[in-house]
């Protein structure tokens, strides 16, 4: 059925096009604005306001929420620049992030490839490998701190039992090992989610590509390199972005297992922020580091995605 838009003598029944556009867009915008208002209000209250408040605090000498703060200009930014622990913890944050992407992301990919080859036991292993992700990071920290205990821990006892006691290390006391050791615990908790994402990605790869590769005589390694990994490109981009953001947010395991020690060897930017804000009550400097961390997250994610987009093109 066609709508009647003209009279018998051919006159256009519709309003002039410009007026229609104007009225329509006004009505549409008004309705959209009203519908979006609750979301905008919530976003403003719970996201925008804290962000703006943090930026404001970074320019003050705030010693806590109950204290009067005065404007100090760029003092906190200059202090951050002069503080060697800020730079050390920044470097360790990048190291932490790298460890997390490789350990958690890598393990997630390897296990996804292994689990997807299973048929009858696939659900069992998928569930079993995902289970650590359901455990709170703080609890994971306590468990792994006990595993690493140099005198009573699982690793120390096992090595001693099999006559390799000399291989035992100060997992949490050696400054060169500590960040890696803590990251293993954190990655153990995180790999399950990445594994599930990879499994979902694997299920979306067209099976005919494997059949074609087999007809061409490709072996397993060639199929992995030329079919599977290219097929996972989008999932991999997402997983790496997610792992980088999760890596930047790393806090609980470090706080529980080492408290940033020994002698700042595992201090990352988030644990230093907590120490400044809640132990030393130096909210100004802590706010500067929060802004720095947020900028880092934005820059790293945007840069990585642009790089991936360029590669794909």
């Amino acid at each position: 059925m066609t709508r009647l838009t003209t009279t018998a003598d051919g006159a256009d029944l519709r309003a002039p096009a410009s007026a229609r556009r104007r009225d329509g867009s006004r009505d549409g915008f008004g309705a959209a604005f009203v519908l979006m208002l609750p979301a905008i209000a919530l976003y403003g209250l719970f996201s925008l306001t804290p962000i703006l408040f943090t930026v404001w605090i970074s320019f003050t000498n705030s010693g806590g929420f109950n204290t009067e703060a005065s404007f100090v200009g760029l003092d906190n930014y200059l202090r951050a620049g002069d503080d060697p622990i800020v730079w050390q913890s920044l470097g360790r944050t990048f190291l932490w992030l790298g460890y997390h992407v490789v350990l958690a992301g890598g393990l997630g990919l390897v296990l996804a490839l292994a689990v997807s080859r299973l048929s009858r036991t696939r659900v069992f292993f998928r569930t079993a490998f995902f289970l650590p992700h359901l455990v709170s990071l703080a609890v994971v920290g306590v468990i792994w701190a006990n595993i690493y205990d140099p005198f009573y821990g699982l690793i120390s006892t096992a090595l001693t039992q099999i006559g390799l006691g000399s291989w035992n290390q100060g997992w949490l006391s050696d400054p060169l090992l500590v960040l890696f050791s803590v990251n293993v615990a954190s990655s153990w908790q995180g790999f399950g989610l990445y594994m599930l994402l990879f499994i979902a990605g694997l299920q979306n790869i067209d099976q005919s590509l494997y059949e074609a590769a087999e007809i061409d005589g490709a072996n397993s390694w060639q199929k992995l390199c030329n079919v599977t990994l290219p097929g996972l490109r989008d999932v991999m981009t997402f997983v790496i972005s997610l792992a980088m953001i999760n890596g930047l947010k790393g806090f609980a395991t470090v706080f529980v297992m080492t408290n940033g020690g020994p002698f700042y060897a595992s201090e990352i930017i988030t644990t230093y922020i907590y120490r400044l804000a809640f132990q030393a009550q130096d909210h100004g400097l802590a706010a500067v580091l929060c802004i720095l961390m947020s900028l880092l997250a934005i820059v790293i994610t945007v840069a990585f995605n642009r790089w991936r987009a360029r590669q794909a093109a």
């Binding site: 005198f151 009573y152 997992w171 006391s173």
Partner: peptide, 21 residues
């Protein structure tokens, strides 16, 4: 003082003493 104790918490140190290690 074992250098490995730098990675031990108070609970761990107490455990060593209570077990007479």
């Amino acid at each position: 003082i074992s250098p490995q104790m730098a990675g031990l918490d108070q609970e761990g140190a107490m455990r060593m003493w209570i077990n007479e290690r």
